[in-house]
Design a protein around this nucleic acid. Sequence first.
DNA 1: GATGAATGAGAGTTCATTCAT
DNA 2: TATGAATGAACTCTCATTCAT
Lengths: 199, 199, 199, 199
Amino acid sequence: MGRTSDAKNRLIATAQNLFWERSYRNVGVNEICEQAGVKPGSFYYFFPSKNALALEALEDGWQQFQSHALEPAFAMNVAPLDRITKLFQIIYDDHSAMQEQNKRILGCLFGSFVGELGEQDELIRQRIETVFTEIRKYFESALEDAIALGLVNIEFEDVPTCAEALLAFYEGALLIARAKNDAEIIRELTPHALKLLSG
Amino acid sequence: MGRTSDAKNRLIATAQNLFWERSYRNVGVNEICEQAGVKPGSFYYFFPSKNALALEALEDGWQQFQSHALEPAFAMNVAPLDRITKLFQIIYDDHSAMQEQNKRILGCLFGSFVGELGEQDELIRQRIETVFTEIRKYFESALEDAIALGLVNIEFEDVPTCAEALLAFYEGALLIARAKNDAEIIRELTPHALKLLSG
Amino acid sequence: MGRTSDAKNRLIATAQNLFWERSYRNVGVNEICEQAGVKPGSFYYFFPSKNALALEALEDGWQQFQSHALEPAFAMNVAPLDRITKLFQIIYDDHSAMQEQNKRILGCLFGSFVGELGEQDELIRQRIETVFTEIRKYFESALEDAIALGLVNIEFEDVPTCAEALLAFYEGALLIARAKNDAEIIRELTPHALKLLSG
Amino acid sequence: MGRTSDAKNRLIATAQNLFWERSYRNVGVNEICEQAGVKPGSFYYFFPSKNALALEALEDGWQQFQSHALEPAFAMNVAPLDRITKLFQIIYDDHSAMQEQNKRILGCLFGSFVGELGEQDELIRQRIETVFTEIRKYFESALEDAIALGLVNIEFEDVPTCAEALLAFYEGALLIARAKNDAEIIRELTPHALKLLSG
DNA sequence: GATGAATGAGAGTTCATTCAT
DNA sequence: TATGAATGAACTCTCATTCAT
């Protein structure tokens, strides 16, 4: 039996952070290795290419986003409409903490990848597309629950587009926050998300 | 009084297209020169750096966006609320044409730059920030006109945030369209923009 | 008394094939292991270096060449001059079969190694040299038998050079066949080999 | 106007030498640059790839072989059959000089490339194939002249195959010389070439 | 005995930029 | 004014080999 280590996971986690902060092309393989405490020569034992790492980093980011933000926000014990504001709240808290540490406002990992890698790597674009689909499903289920409880005045058939609108608003809010390097945008825009739930 | 060399303008126009399509880092100076029909050695006669070109390309993109989309959409003879849908309509038409030509859906030039260069180049980030501010002003003026005409039920003090919400929604819609490589998203989401105008 | 591990033999056989097809430097240790179904870590349990494997692969190739081509061709029951044409015939049949399977025409394993490793690894060069000497001996014995039977008009002292000429012609024929990727060259040139047997 | 230099030609000449001596894969781009007095970064200004350089080096080698060996040997004022021995003589002289300088016996540039790059790069294989065709044409014209003068007893229709046999013998002789690292092989085998010219 | 994990040295290549003309 | 030539630093990636288990 050979050795075992969590080097691969360290590489994924480090890459996720660095890509999020400075984008894919602005981060080199060597830098990722250095920061992950992995020798540069080892990288290609774990990953066939930098691109493959990006895909796994995306995957990891999705897992974290689900467990850290989506699942708590869209928990069953949260009132349907509160789920949406709670998602914004969690993300705002994260970014607010960044700001206090004088870190850059990162926005959404998936949204940031779109501009740079969407046209470059079809596999990554597809993964981001499915991630967005998954997020939309959370919005949809909240909307359906809200309809069932008579909290909103939306036709059942309009749920998908309405969820898409929520997703667009969410991604747009984070994009603007990143562009302005200001977390407060997220807080300010949170109540406006609910306006998208009218009929 | 000689105009700026035509070569310079060709470089700017070419760069704008290529950056929009494939992002900043994925396009090389030589490639821009080649496609613009400018000799590679001449580049640094016209621009101090690739970064400076990006700034001018952004500038050029902003001019075009204003004259091609913002000015027609937010013309005085258009009813205030129609201005917003008209902006979405113009952008949808552009992207729809792309789609028919089997080109990639590009989304928003400024939004695409955010993920890649926001953290890298402070000057570019600032320019994008002011561009967003300028766009928001168009939304604000439309909202103010709508309030004056009693078309919407918004407090005057809420106009800025409301405009910010519109901008976020607009950017988010284009980001999703790029991610899904599908122009129809823009058309589907257009009516939802107006929901953000309630009190 | 256990035989050499089967894994080792698989590595040798695989290496021989791959080296013959794509040359020494174009084939990596990991690829050999993978194709031989041997775990990459095990390689250096069986061989001290890639070079040592090459030497053993050469050895193996020599054994096969002897048993598959030389021994049948130079069998005592074959008329001396027919032995030479029979060698060409056997090699042609092999390459003709390759061609029908749309495989590349490989030429001579030993000849292919000469260009790449002759100057690089003295041990390998020496082994190829002795292989060539061995092959020449087969030609020499056939020539001696032909002289004894009065089938050719060669002085006894000219036998070594004459055999060298045959070897050169044989290697050259296979080199051209590989270069043209055409097995037919071998068949066409076969009768010309006998011309080298005149006085 | 930019600078001018013969750096490209120096790179080609150096590469030809090094590839001939130590084969393609055993020589790095950096080493070629260093020996040619060209900065490593400049390489890719002159050539799109190492492979492209190999193709040009082959081209250059072919030019030199023509002017240095083929043209003098196959000059009209040389008797047809002497042309063939003269080619061997010239090549022998070259290699003999190498030997006296304690250099390695290189054999034929084209023949050496076959084993290593034949299967790797189809363009290079094709170029070597046409080089061989060109060389064969020299042999053919000598044979035709010899037939016309009644110096050999060959049917006109056998000329191509006969020339092919000469080419094979020539390449084989150089291959053996390289394998044995001994130039004398070439001299010894020279007279045997003429045996291939009988009917 | 056998192997999964890891690695150092170096490969080929890219690219924003500089320089001589 | 304009440019062909050139470059250094950094890039992604390969690979024969080593090592802990």
